[in-house]
């Protein structure tokens, strides 16, 4: 302590070096242990894997608010919001065991920075696919279990409705005959975890970057196996177990791996 309180009279090299060391000490001392999103330690990066998330609607590019798409149940609709969590993002090894890359990731389709993220030091080699959940696995899906951030502050699933976090918020507008209504497809709670498994030969290089390109087709949320009808099934599904289940079941093939 006393070092810092000395008056600044001399400016010898030795002293400024001391200050530098102290600065570093204090700085590292400041770091707090946070619940990590990334289980792979940040060792010097030799190679990396970059995950790219992109969005389509019926194979057309996603344009918020403007474009009208046609749902499987024949309603013209638009998209105004897409926020979701991915969890247990993993590469599948040839022996079917998993290499967990990241515990969870929050994405807002409208915020580019949340749709590209790099992971360092991935064991090089051949993998047979990629797997993750849309939503948070039960270990992480507890109220306040994730570090509070300005993103997830809007994703909490209230305690009176079971607690945890929203897995997905897909919102927009649809037209029934001539009238326009809003729709809000919100998924949360254990029964709505969507499991994604994409089999495809993947090679992670020894050095340099490997890209993993995931594309979500939003139209898939409304079809296969359940043709979702905004009017009959509900335009607001949070808390409606049957409607949430229908959308959850449709979620299994919303993602594709792009070449």
């Amino acid at each position: 302590m006393t070092i810092f309180l000395r008056p600044f009279i001399s400016v010898s090299m030795a002293r400024s070096f001391t200050y530098l060391v102290c600065f570093l000490l204090v700085f590292t001392g400041c770091k707090k242990d946070k619940k990590s999103e990334n289980p792979i330690p940040d060792s010097p990066v030799e190679n990396s894997l970059t995950v790219h998330l992109s969005y389509l609607v019926d194979a057309n590019p996603l344009h918020f608010e403007q474009t009208e798409y046609i749902s499987a149940a024949n309603y013209p609709y638009s998209v105004s919001k897409l926020n979701y969590y991915l969890s247990q993002l993993s590469l599948i090894k040839s022996d079917s065991s998993l290499l967990v890359l990241k515990n969870y990731h929050y994405a807002d389709a409208a915020i580019p920075e949340t749709n590209t993220f790099q992971l360092g030091s991935i064991p090089a080699g051949h993998y047979v696919g990629f797997t993750c959940n849309i939503g948070l696995d039960s270990n992480q899906n507890k109220s306040n279990s994730l570090a509070a951030t300005n993103d997830n502050i809007n994703m909490q699933w209230p305690e009176p409705m079971g607690g945890g976090y929203h897995f997905l918020k897909l919102e927009g507008y649809f037209t029934d005959s001539t009238k326009t209504y809003g729709y809000a497809m919100h998924l949360g709670t254990k029964a709505c975890l969507v499991k994604i498994k994409l089999l495809k030969a993947l090679v992670v290089k020894e050095s340099g970057n490997t890209d993993l390109k995931l594309s979500m087709d939003l139209a898939e949320w409304f079809k296969n196996p359940n043709t979702f009808d905004f009017v009959k099934d509900g335009n607001y599904i949070m808390g409606n177990a049957i409607a949430m289940k229908k959308v959850t079941d449709n979620g299994k093939d919303v993602f594709k791996l792009l070449p």
Binding site: F8, V11, C30
Partner: peptide, 17 residues
């Protein structure tokens, strides 16, 4: 420069404690 770096040290210290 030295004063500035010392200032940084101090401000970080103050921020921490």
């Amino acid at each position: 420069k030295k004063i500035i770096s010392s200032l940084i040290v101090l401000s970080v210290l103050a921020a921490c404690t």
